[in-house]
Every structure is written in C-alpha cells, then in structure tokens.
Design a protein around this nucleic acid. Structure first.
Lengths: 347, 347
DNA sequence: TTGTAAGCGTTATCAG
DNA sequence: CTGATAACGCTTACAA
C-alpha cells in the first residue's frame, strides 16, 4: 500500500520554483505576489503580479503551509482536548472555538480523550509533535499526564485550561463558568416566584462529580435565599430511574414545588416523566435545568441557566491572541433564561 | 502580540543536531535511535541507543513532525468535513473516525461547514494548504466548491465521500448507508407483528431533503409488504407541531397502528407526546425511529434501525489504507434494533 | 524591481 | 557505527 500511494503520486508538487520558472520570474517575486501586504516583501509591479497569479492559476499552485511552518515556527493550528463530546453544549463549545480560530486563519483540532488516560496521552503527543500553537484542555488529568505539560512549556507551546473550577497548575490560565452563580440565579428565580420547597435531581453521587458539586452550590444558594428549603435530592441515571422518581413524588403528601435539575438533559426527562405521572408543569411543579442549549425537538421549553460557551471561547481566544498566559482565572457569568417551566405563584 | 509571542519563545527548539552534540554522536545515529524498526536506518548498538534516548529525555527533545512531513510528503493528517455536527450519530461518526486514525498514527481534523458555502471553502482551503493526506467529505456541495476538488486531485490528495446516496463525482469512492434497506427493515418488522395502517412523521417537506427521501423509500417498502398501508404522512418541525400531531391522531376515528419516524430524535418526541396525549405505547400505537444512537436520558427505548457509523468509518478507512480510490459505491447495511416501542399484535 | 544564498528540522544516501 | 552532504518547499536578509 505504501507502494501504491507512492505510485499514485508521481505528479510532483507545484512549487514556487516551478511557478517562477513558468512565469519567467524569480522565486522571491512569486513570494511577493502572494504576500503583497507584508512589509518584508520586495515590491513588484502590478503587471508581473498579475502574470504570476495567472501562471499560478494555470499550474494549480497551492502554497505549502508545512514548509511555511518550518521557517516561521508557527503551525497555525490549535489543539482542543475535551474529556468527551456527548452533549449539545460541548458541540457548541467546539463550534464556537472553531469559528473563532478558522476566522483568524487557524485550524482547530478538537479531540476527546473519552476519559482514557492512554488516549489522552496519544492525542497530546500528536499535538506536541505537530507543534500546535496552543493547547486548550478541559478537565485535564494533571496527575497522570502532567509530564506532557512540561514538554509543552519546554517547546514553548502555551496551555489554556477551560471548564475547570480552579487553576490547577501555575503559569497557565484557566477559563471557566462561574458555577456558584449558576445555582444562585436558579434560587433567586424560584424565590422571586414564591416557591419554597425545592428538590435536586442530579446524575451521580460520586464525590467531586460535577453533579455533586452543583448540589453543594445549590445548598449554599438556598441558604442565601430566605424562605427557600431544599427538601431532598435524588440521583437519576436513566429514564427508568426518572420514572420511579416521578412516581415517588406522586406519593408524597407534600411534593416539592420545584425540581432543580443538574442540567437540561435531565430536566427534559424529568419534565416529561412528571407530566406522564400526571403533574401539570409548571402549575403544580416547576422544573429548571442548566446549560441552555436547546433543539427544536426538545419536548419542554425549559427555564434554565445558560452557560454561554461563545463567551468562554472568546475569553480563551483572547488569552491566546494576547499571549497572556499568566496564571489567572477568568470566570464567565451564566445567564438566566426564563421560559415555560416555572410559574409565578405570587401573581 | 506578535512581539510578545516572539519574546516568549527565545528558547530555541531542541533539534536533532543539539541532541547529537549533547550525546556525542552523529545526527544519523539519533535518527536511528528513534526509528530502530525501519530498514532504512543504519544499525546502532543498544548502548548508544540508550545513551541517546537518555540524552533526549534530559534535554526534552520532541521530534518535529512538520519537518518530517516536508521530506516525506505525508502530513499524517486527515480532514473530515461534515455539514453539521448536531446529532449523536454524527458525533459517534467523528469519534469512530478519530479512533481509527489516531490508532494508526494519524490525526483527524473534523470540521463542519454548517451549510455555509463560504465556510466550506475556508475549511477545504485549510486542508489543502496543510497538505492533508486525505479528505473525507459528507454531502459536499460539488456545484459551488467543485473547483477545490480539482485542486485536491492535482495535489494528489484523495477525496472520499460518505453519507451520500450516490457517487456524485467520477474517480472518488463513496461510502454510504443502504437507505433503501432502512425502510424495508422497518416495514418487515411492522408487517411481521401484524400491524397494518402506518403513518410517517418526517421533519421537512423540501424535495430531496433526507426526510422526503426516507418517505419515498418508505412508500416503496410498503408496496413490497402485503397488508401494510401508508395511511398518511406529517411534517414535524418542533415540539409544538408534535403536540398538534398527537392531538390530531387522538381525534381520528381510526388512528394508525404505528408511526414511522424520520429518525430517533423525532421518534422520541413523538413517543412522549403520544403518551401525554393519552395513547399507550406500544399497546395502542407503535413508534419506530432511525439511527440507533441512544442516551440513558432518552425517555423511550425505541425500536429503530441502527445506522452503524463504525462500519462506515471502517469502510472509509480501508479505502484510505489501500489507496483504493477508484469510483465505487460501498453500501453499509443498517441493522434492526428491537426494543420496547412496538408490540406483536399477532401473539 | 530582481537575484542569490542562507536557513528551518528532518530524512536519505554515500563514503568512510 | 560516524561524518558529510543533499534534498523537501518556503521565507527573508542582503546585494545587484
């Protein structure tokens, strides 16, 4: 197969030299024709420029970025490493980064480690060898692959952390959502609408899981809202458990007035199962989510707190552009979105 | 900022030359130490090899793939261009490709054009300049950006089409799902279970849209199944329309026994709204989807036809490895998945 | 305005 | 096993 590939590409690449010969000019002239804006280029007449461009068109000349990279030291490539890519929010995050970078002439290489340390290593090694201009990393396992980080800094490749709660490494900037504020916004909304007893629906109990952390933040936020009471918390791992959860609420003497969910995915399911269990939403029970990314085929128009990934991407991009890699934590403010799954009891 | 970056990287890269000097050997020896498997390398003693590797560790030497690329002509990079990346299926597709390629030492660069011809151009230009080893393209707009295709072939970069229904360009292989079989599997299942009157729930009416095509295939498949009748077809663009659709079925004298949906996303919503409208599923009405990618938080355990993206990715990868880029169409067979949203009426 | 020549870091070849 | 030397394609400083 190596042979086949070699045989299939006997057509030598069209180089500047070939183009120069074809157009009857020097290689520098070709370079100048393509980068007329730069100050480093020598001046050429518009006529020769047109002649060169025409020749390029004719020969099908395509500049080779790799050679360019070799001399400039910049690959105009940025690596993005996530733990997974299974939610609409992460998709939008990748898309936001991609737009920003492509717009500015960079190519984004998004990858997910899928929580495998081995895969994470492989991907980061690739980024390293390919001399990516910057690595953006979410929930990086510093313990296991920390040595690679050092390699990056040795190669002069900056690392930006995103989505982490705190700076985990000196000399590397972190951009994350202001998680404390998320639950504060939810509680303020519910409190404002006269709701008192609330319930938390998370996805996993494991200490330090994102779901458990939000529960802690919720507890804090409840304390700050006089009148609000956290009546209980459940863990919902799938649709069957959600059905049980709904049945459980049905049997309570005094069911909560609102279910605060870990994220929109859970909130959608909770809203559906509560409705099927016979609750009217939001009249009898309110539901809130977190993340704010919807699809027209979502059954409920959720009240939620939006985590604006575009702003996160912009903040990370700014750090990159300004090469401001000092140890710092940039917090992105979440935004309350009021739709149809809570209702003002005070009215 | 250019200045800052330049100032931030005065640490010259660790090159083979530096490493060779540090270890007291020649550059070729270093090369041999790193590629002991290749036949082109000269032989070195294990002792010197260890010495060199130790020195590499000490200096933090990282081989530069870009320089390697320049001489070998292979960037070990593959571009994947999709129209969008908003479904679980496409995510899995990307992930399947990424696994295959990363495993074999390539880096996948997935991008979505988001149906913008301009963005599609930008991304393809990037791929071209970066001298990607292969471009995999889904639903490419040959009309608008066809000229770029020619550039690819001129640079010796193969193009593989995926997900398209037919080969749209000579000399380029296409890998796609066998769409005709999808609806045939659905109809056979329903027919086997004694269902007679079915209804189609699509997403858009536009001629040639994927949704309209599946409806056509459904019509064909119905003809082939004696006893099966397509009682009607609806177009559902969002949750509100789905609610109306469910209400409509409720008011029918003889509602259909099954709703065949365009994909799983629609099927989930249809299942939810039918249940909320008071239908029992699958006792009173069956629901089927297409694609087979689920999430634990999906409310219904759908009967569906799985489109196996891993197999599609493998087929495309095989074409790449074997450099078998002749004009050909590889069809991937879909797989019926029986779960809980249809029920055997014959029992 | 054009040409010449020296790099960038790696690979490959050919003498020793 | 080592040393020297020539690519790969593009950039750029300097001289004509």
């Amino acid at each position: 197969m190596e042979l086949k590939q070699a045989a299939a590409a006997p057509v030598r690449q069209v180089t500047v030299a070939m183009l120069a010969k074809h157009a009857g000019v020097s290689r520098v002239a070709v370079y100048a024709a393509f980068n007329s804006g730069k100050k480093t280029t020598v001046g050429i007449s518009e006529k020769t420029r047109q002649k060169i461009l025409a020749a390029a068109e004719e020969l099908g000349y395509v500049p080779n970025d790799l050679a360019r990279t070799l001399v400039s030291g910049q690959s105009r490539t940025v690596g993005l490493l996530l733990k997974s890519n299974d939610s609409l929010m992460l998709q939008r995050l990748i898309s936001a980064f991609s737009h920003l970078f492509v717009e500015h002439g960079y190519l984004l290489i998004p990858e997910s480690s899928e929580s495998s340390v081995k895969r994470e290593r492989e991907i980061l090694s690739h980024f390293l060898h390919k001399r990516v201009d910057c690595v953006i990393v979410a929930w990086f396992g510093f313990d296991s692959n920390g040595d690679l980080l050092e390699q990056f800094s040795r190669c002069g490749i900056p690392v930006i952390n995103i989505l982490n709660r705190q700076v985990e490494h000196p000399d590397s900037a972190t951009v994350s959502f202001d998680e404390e504020q998320v639950m504060r916004l939810v509680c303020e909304l519910l409190s404002r609408q006269g709701i008192r007893r609330i319930w938390y629906a998370g996805t996993e109990k494991r200490e330090n899981s994102s779901s458990a952390c939000r529960l802690n933040y919720l507890r804090e936020a409840v304390k700050a809202c006089p009148g609000l009471v956290l009546a209980g918390a459940s863990c919902i791992a799938d649709a069957a458990e959600c059905r049980e959860f709904a049945a459980g609420l049905r049997q309570m003497d005094v069911p909560p007035e609102a279910v605060v969910c870990y994220n929109d995915r859970v909130a959608q399911l909770v809203a559906v199962e509560l409705r099927i269990a016979g609750f009217r939403i939001p009249e009898e029970i309110a539901v809130t989510g977190v993340d704010g990314y919807t699809d027209p085929y979502d059954p409920a128009r959720l009240n939620t707190v939006r985590l604006p990934v575009e702003k996160l991407a912009e903040a990370a991009y700014r750090i990159f552009r300004e090469a401001d890699y000092r140890s710092q934590l940039v917090r992105i403010a979440p935004e309350l979105i009021e739709r149809e799954t809570t209702r003002n009891l005070k009215q």
